[in-house]
Design a protein around this nucleic acid. Structure first.
Length: 753
DNA sequence: TGACGTCACTTTTTT
DNA sequence: AGTGACGTCA
């Protein structure tokens, strides 16, 4: 995009008129908007909700609005608060705003909820009982800390799984509840009714460690704004305009934080799409967006419904699907004036492919992707979007076999690998000797003969004298309280940290870090490791140092790591993308494959068990997100049998398939033709049975004496072989198979033996 | 302290 | 099937 203005424009634009609409020649960033978009950009005063459907130009509106605020002189960059959900979105907005203004913008409060929360918390750390260089703990550290606290509080970790308690605490934090505010009535039947005291102890422990967990980054600032009128007033003065992206994904504490900040000027603009709310499991409350007009009286609501991304059949299918949801604000996507490809009338139908098993499904995806590439389509414009991460594996294997380049997005993340976390722990101890969690991780890594006994001694001493672990270790060494290897090992490590800190001062963080990894023996440990992945880990460590070198200080780097847990997107070469539906939100591709549309998997059974109808609606929104990622072509598929753990599981087609409009889809597939099709080759046959795959399924070999199947019946299943029925529940049978163990199958897939 | 065997569990999604 | 937690043994 060409540069549209500079700050020299500000003067000329801001003075003469408050309403830019009255100007004869609107600036280019306004001219290219449709009327609704333009209204969303120009409605600056008061609360505003922009309901932006998929592909309706949401990002364009947000950035144009941002630029508009600055260019009309309504506010300086530092007076606008812009919140996104992901780091990627924040980066994008920053770049686009800079492009519109024609230069980089300094002093912006633009970032993710967590990054901005952290920034605020560092400013006022003392008021939250922390010092400003507090450590941000990741999920792993949180859990380890909680386990320690549970032990100290004598809560049996065997009976009460720590992850469950962690989830409980996080949920409280998501709702803006510090320990003191959790009502007694919410004490669950868990941990012997002591969850709240464990929570309190956990928070206290965080305080002594000078650490905050992810939830605290929002909880503590919100608590601060709530209780400290001075701080609140300070931010009211500062933030004249507030912009929020993906509002449908906010949780309660994020809502409270925003509401407190918005009380000042009431210029709050939230952009979101209730049909794309897919994070309730993480505490997001779709009610936030549904309630907006009540929460902010006098709010204006603008709907963006013109979709410039997808073909008409895709939009029709998505609209029909999402119409099955009850709790919606209501909004229908329709093709925009100049629909990208195919025009409003044209466009390929949605393809629904029925396969025999997940292997065949993977083959279908690979073959079709390959065929499309032969026709000249770019692999970079194709994506396979799945419900659950494990589904990518089958596809990956197939893509490797046929040699089609792919990348898994959001799979294993760089900063979660063991060697990187180890290196980070070293870095943390270097930066903050009091970081007990990090110290504990590396004190015996590589092995230094520090076992349970030595560790316990350190813990005891630390607790008794209220000092960090590393300090306790030093005193134990000095007092000669440790023996043999442990003593030497710890003494050597502590001496090392002394040197490395000196080096940090003198020669900078990169040199110090590299020396530390070498001298501590950590690098050597991997060099001597004969495991096949050891060289790769060493390579990762080098990459770690490269990443470190891009930051000015160790502290800056550590913050980045905690908050920007992204995997480096090495966008080298053309690759088809594999990712979960969640990870795909906000992206778009020409061709989208949606495998695994089966009951139990999608909609996901576990999700349904937990949340009932609400969860079903969320699953449906996930399907909606999947469909609307596609510009030109969607291939949905489902398999009758899926590899699960070590064995196979049979499944029936997803109910979502029945919710797609028959006119917009084309059903093909080999599954319904049964065994014969599998032996005649990979060709996909159109079903002849009135296009209804469901009916074709029912034509599959069916036991004539179906009704006679009872507990104890001996049956035969195509995939699992012989077995005995252990229970019958309408058309579902539990069968213990002789070779593959107990399975739940549909009666139509077995015959009496 | 560390090596080895057994066992249960996994697969929903992640800032 | 692959993994991690846990117990037993040298």
């Amino acid at each position: 995009m060409e540069q549209v203005g500079t700050f020299s424009m500000i003067a000329s634009v801001s003075h003469p008129a408050n309403s830019p609409r009255t100007q004869p020649h609107p600036p280019p960033y306004l001219a290219r908007l449709n009327p609704e978009q333009r209204e969303a950009v120009e409605t600056l005063d008061g609360p505003l909700l922009v309901l932006a459907g998929a592909g309706t130009g949401k990002t364009r509106v947000l950035t144009a609005r941002f630029a508009h605020i600055l260019l009309t002189g309504r506010a300086a960059p530092s007076q606008v608060l812009a919140v996104t959900f992901t780091n990627k979105a924040a980066r994008e907005m920053r770049e686009r705003v800079a492009a519109m203004l024609g230069r980089p913008v300094e002093g912006l409060w633009l970032g993710t909820f967590h990054a901005l929360g952290a920034r605020m918390l560092r400013r006022h750390a003392d008021r939250a009982g922390l010092s400003s260089n507090f450590t941000i703990l990741d999920a792993d550290d949180q859990l380890r800390l909680l386990k320690q606290v549970m032990e100290a509080e004598r809560v049996d970790a065997k009976r009460w799984p720590p992850p469950a308690l962690m989830a409980l605490i996080q949920r409280w934090k998501d709702r803006g509840l510090p320990p003191a505010r959790v009502p007694e009535s919410e004490e669950p039947e868990f941990a012997g009714g002591r969850t709240r005291s464990v929570y309190a102890a956990y928070q206290a422990r965080l305080g002594t460690l000078n650490a905050a967990d992810f939830g605290d980054l929002l909880l503590l600032p919100t608590e601060l704004l709530r209780t400290d009128a001075d701080v609140l007033a300070q931010y009211h003065r500062q933030f004249r305009y507030i912009l929020v992206d993906e509002y449908q994904d906010t949780n309660l504490v994020q809502y409270l934080w925003l509401r407190l900040l918005a009380q000042g000027h009431r210029n709050l603009c939230c952009v979101g799409d209730d049909d794309q709310s897919i994070y309730s499991w993480r505490g997001a409350e779709i009610e936030n967006i549904l309630r907006f007009e009540k929460d902010f009286p006098g709010a204006k609501v603008i709907r963006l419904e013109r979709n410039y991304r997808s073909t008409a059949p895709i939009l029709a299918a998505a609209a029909a699907l999402i119409a099955h949801n009850e709790g919606r604000l209501g909004k229908t996507l329709r093709p925009g004036a100049e629909t990208a490809v195919g025009g409003a009338a044209g466009g390929e139908k949605i393809q629904v492919v029925a396969l025999w098993d997940s292997d065949e499904e993977a083959r279908m995806v690979g073959d079709r992707a390959e065929a499309l590439r032969r026709d000249g389509e770019s692999l970079a414009e194709m994506a396979v979007l799945v419900r659950a991460g494990f589904q990518t594996r089958a596809v990956e294997e197939r893509l490797i076999t046929i040699g089609l380049p792919y990348r898994v997005v959001g799979g294993l993340r760089f900063y979660e690998r063991a060697e990187i976390r180890d290196a980070l722990a070293y870095a943390r101890v270097l930066a903050q000797p009091a970081d007990d969690l990090a110290f504990e991780r590396i004190v015996n890594l590589p092995r230094r003969g520090v076992g349970e006994t030595a560790l316990r001694a350190m813990h005891d001493r630390a607790r008794a004298e209220h000092i960090p672990l590393s300090e306790a270790a030093a005193r134990l060494v000095a007092a000669g309280a440790l023996r043999g290897k442990a003593r030497e090992g710890i003494a050597g490590l502590l001496a090392g940290f002394g040197r490395w800190r000196g080096q940090l001062e003198a020669e900078g963080h990169v040199i110090a870090m590299a020396t530390m990894l070498d001298e501590s023996g950590y690098t050597t440990m991997w060099q001597q490791d004969t495991a096949p992945d050891a060289p790769g880990r060493l390579e990762n460590l080098k990459e770690f140092l490269r990443a470190l070198a891009e930051f000015e200080s160790l502290a800056g780097f550590l913050d980045h790591v905690a908050l920007v847990m992204e995997n480096e997107t090495n966008a080298d070469g053309e690759r088809i993308s594999l990712m979960t539906l969640h990870a795909a939100k906000g992206l778009e591709f020409d061709t989208v494959f949606l495998p695994g549309w089966e009951e139990g998997l999608f909609p996901n059974q576990r999700s349904l068990d937990e949340g009932g109808i609400k969860s079903l609606e969320e699953e449906r929104r996930l399907a909606y997100v999947g469909l609307t990622r596609a510009r030109r072509r969607v291939v949905v598929s489902h398999a009758a049998n899926r590899r699960l753990y070590s064995g196979w599981q049979s499944a029936i087609p997803s109910r979502f398939l029945d919710e797609l409009p028959e006119d917009e889809i084309e059903r093909t597939g080999s599954a319904a033709l049964g065994r014969a099709a599998r032996h005649t080759g990979p060709v996909a046959f159109p079903l002849q049975v009135r296009g209804r795959v469901q009916e074709a399924w029912e034509q599959a070999p069916r036991p004539p004496q179906r009704a006679s199947l009872t507990v104890g019946s001996r049956v035969f299943h195509e995939k699992f072989g012989y077995g005995t029925v252990t229970s019958v529940e309408s058309d579902r049978l539990d069968v213990t198979f002789e070779t593959s163990g107990p399975k739940r199958v549909l009666d139509r897939f077995v015959v009496a033996a």
